[in-house]
Amino acid sequence: MFVPFRSTFLVIAALTGSSVAPAQVNPNAAPMPAAEWTPLPDAPVEQLLQQNVDPLAPAPEAESATVQSPDDTIEPGETLAETVAKLRSSDPGSRELECLAGAIYFESKSESLSGQLAVGHVIANRAASGRFPSSYCGVVYQRSQFSFVRGHSMPYIPRASQDWKDAVAIAKIVDEKLHPSPMGKALFFHARRVSPGWRMSRVGTLGNHIFYR
Rank of each mutant, 00 (worst) to 15 (best):
S90M: 04
R126W: 10
A81T: 11
S108M: 02
S110I: 07
A127E: 00
I173W: 04
R88K: 15
V53N: 08
F189Y: 14
E46L: 13
L10T: 13
S144T: 07
S181C: 04
P41V: 07
L87I: 09
S108V: 00
I210W: 01
S112F: 00
R88W: 02
D175A: 11
R202M: 15
P27Y: 03
H179R: 13
P4N: 09
T16S: 07
R213I: 05
T73G: 00
T16A: 10
S129P: 13
T16V: 09
A169T: 03
Y212D: 07
R150N: 11
A62K: 14
V119G: 05
P22T: 05
V139T: 03
S144N: 15
W198T: 04
V119N: 13
L97M: 14
S89C: 11
G204I: 03
I74M: 13
A85I: 06
Y105E: 04
Q142C: 00
E78R: 02
P182H: 04
H190R: 03
H152G: 09
M32R: 12
K165S: 11
E78K: 04
A169P: 04
L113R: 04
I104Q: 03
G17S: 15
S112A: 03
P133K: 02
I210N: 05
A59H: 10
F189E: 03
C137A: 06
I173R: 06
F188Q: 06
V84Q: 01
A35Y: 03
N26K: 12
P27E: 08
V20A: 11
